[in-house]
Design a protein around this nucleic acid. Structure first.
Lengths: 242, 242
DNA sequence: CGTTCACTTGACTTGGCTCAATTCAAGTGG
DNA sequence: CCACTTGAATTGAGCCAAGTCAAGTGAACG
């Protein structure tokens, strides 16, 4: 049960560059770029379920997600895992207080990221400013998640997670209980185990919570990864936040 | 059981300025300063157990802790509370993705803070850069805390908390198991309830965990707020991180 | 010297975990 | 096209860690 953290490696799973529309050279170690020292960073395409970096790797670059989805997770020595952030377009990751990364990053789906040299970012005020806005939003999301992990029941956690997946809802800008029987079809994009590791539960408990929601007629599970939410408002009511 | 969040107010509990060594004027609403528009921000002294801002207040300024201790917490509508961050000197708070604060901030002990206008910070690259370093460290601390809340047992949580209180240990720079029977006396500076709200437990469970540590001869509780740690290494072993 | 407030401890309850079996969906190959 | 394999999800049964409720203790203070 010893964790994957032991397999330290410079995991840079760049997808076959032939899919890139730009004239990007298929450089071996992805360090070269069109113009050297460009502060705008370097775009990379990363395949599904690939690690961009691992906990403990040297943290000499940081990343911004252009599109796709990435999860950040940490492992305890005995193998327990906690997904600490779920990232979507615009989010920043790879920041660290130490010279090494504090967590691992893995794509949930094929994604595009921009890589910046850590030193370059500290040099460029404009870049720092642009990234900061996103970092602050992520800070708030982490606060919210701490409430979930520390104080919410299993059902509330899953309800919160489903809300989070509904486009335009569940975030900071969620309009709250603007009821009206609005339904939505939601792609989870994660396995039950990954959801469990995000919500601080076991996969069985997550499964039971979904079943409970189905039993109550609040959701229907179409294709195991696809959830039909009949009434978004009713789920929102179960999150504990209203 | 309805929460204190209902009592919205502009809680700026500035301590009696006569204790200030500087020639700070006892301004009524603390907006004036020696030189207007100073990007360096404005120093304030805040008494113990005072709110600097509350969840939902307009977030037009952000703060850096000079000395003392501050906790940030969030409330659920039914009164459940989660302390989301414990801050010490240098830490930044009051950042938000929205125009209002996402959490409340309360001093644990009398503290000094520097208040910056939110707009001014975005203008000043140097200031932003200086604050960012701390923000990144706090991000890592939040990741660490998510692991605690999501995956650690009650005893592991309390052990982690005690480690966190040992000066120079438990943080990112903790040397790990450099054993050698080093003891330490630790001031908690928080009630059992506050600790519980930080660790996602109840105050009874926190109390039992302390008793268990005492029973095992790992700590001794001198004055209820003061814990004598006989062997830091043994506590560290119980945190789940080693 | 009583009052208060924080903490501790005990008895009981329960939500979520563990372990194990079953179902379901999606290949794979004969 | 169907039997088989494989991996993920669901469901059930039992258990235990942590929560709840209720005393009891002890230090601080007027």
């Amino acid at each position: 049960m010893k964790p994957a953290i032991a397999q330290r490696s410079f995991t840079v799973a760049v997808e076959s560059p032939c899919r890139l529309p730009t004239s990007h050279r298929p450089a071996a170690v992805q360090t070269s770029h069109r113009r050297d020292e460009e502060p705008q960073g370097q775009r990379q395409r990363v395949g599904q379920h690939a690690h961009i970096f691992r906990e403990g790797d040297r943290a000499d670059r940081l990343y911004q997600l252009v599109d796709g989805a990435v999860m950040l997770y940490k492992l305890l020595p005995d193998g327990r895992r906690q997904v600490v952030e779920l990232l979507s377009a615009g989010d920043v990751f790879g920041l660290s207080a130490l010279p090494v990364y504090d967590c691992s990053s893995e794509t949930l789906v094929a994604s595009n990221v921009i890589a910046y040299e850590r030193a370059a970012v500290e040099q460029s005020p404009e870049l720092l400013r642009r990234l900061s806005a996103h970092v602050h939003a992520q800070l708030c999301a982490l606060h919210e998640h701490a409430v979930l992990l520390g104080r919410k029941s299993a059902l509330e956690r899953v309800a919160t997670f489903v809300m989070h997946c509904v486009p335009g809802r569940g975030g900071f800008d969620c309009a709250g209980p603007r009821c009206g029987g609005d339904s939505a079809v939601v792609r989870l994009g994660m396995t039950r185990q990954e959801i469990a590791d995000y919500l601080g539960l076991t996969l069985e408990t997550v499964s039971r919570a979904f079943s409970e929601l189905r039993r109550r007629g609040i959701i229907a599970i179409d294709k195991q990864e696809e959830v039909r939410v009949h009434d978004v408002c009713r789920i929102c009511q179960l999150t504990g936040a209203h």
